[in-house]
Amino acid sequence: MTSPLEQKKIKIAGPSVVTANRTWDGIVVYRTAAKSWSADLSEAAIVRNSDEAKALLAEAVADDVGAIGPYIAPVQIGDDGKVLPGNLREQIRRTGVTIGQPAQV
């Protein structure tokens, strides 16, 4: 997956969200329509074009205390309206590592 650290131009091809890591503990969070952060992807604000994405990202960047490293990530919307990560990287960020963690094995 192309790292979002290399994300230079805002160009989206489908539904997207703004995601980051919460400052105090680093967990994955998503920007909500209520201008806050949620660890639940289903609560994320969905953007569908570049202008919306830019606006949501700008607002997220402005909240420097709440979360760090915000970027735009693709999502897929299922037939039932469920929001799912749009690529493997985001899937791993949402659900965790694809391997057993040693302390749990």
Binding site: S3, I92, V97
Partner: peptide
């Protein structure tokens, strides 16, 4: 690899496993 690292493009550990 991609299981942990923000720079990674692909997973390493599952290949090793």
């Amino acid at each position: 690899g991609l299981d942990y690292c923000s720079l990674a493009n692909a997973r390493s550990i599952p290949i090793a496993q």
